[in-house]
């Protein structure tokens, strides 16, 4: 089994939300990347933003300051 690490993961309602977050994160220099949504969140399709757990505060600040919409955020072993 692949070794997993604890990450901060943001899930979205739509692809548009995911792309809006990606753009904002790149502009703000917040680390992470878009990945297929982990099955721990849903077995369905979609994208999620994955980043080191240590950067969680940066993301939470980004979400708040940019009024970004998203479904939910998680601390997950992925």
């Amino acid at each position: 089994m692949r070794k997993k690490e604890l990450c901060f993961v943001v899930a979205f309602h739509t692809t548009t939300e995911a792309l809006a977050l990606e753009e904002a994160a790149h502009q703000a220099g917040v680390v992470g990347r878009l990945i297929p949504i982990p099955t721990q969140i849903t077995a369905g399709c979609g994208l999620a933003w994955k980043m080191p757990i240590t950067a969680r505060a940066d993301m939470e600040q980004l979400l708040q300051q940019n009024h970004l919409t998203y479904d939910a955020s998680y601390e997950l072993w992925v």
Partner: peptide, 17 residues
Amino acid sequence: GSGVQSYRKIHPEEMPT
């Protein structure tokens, strides 16, 4: 098809999807 929320029986309510 929406690429999200695949196991719901209804199409997503969120725009623009």
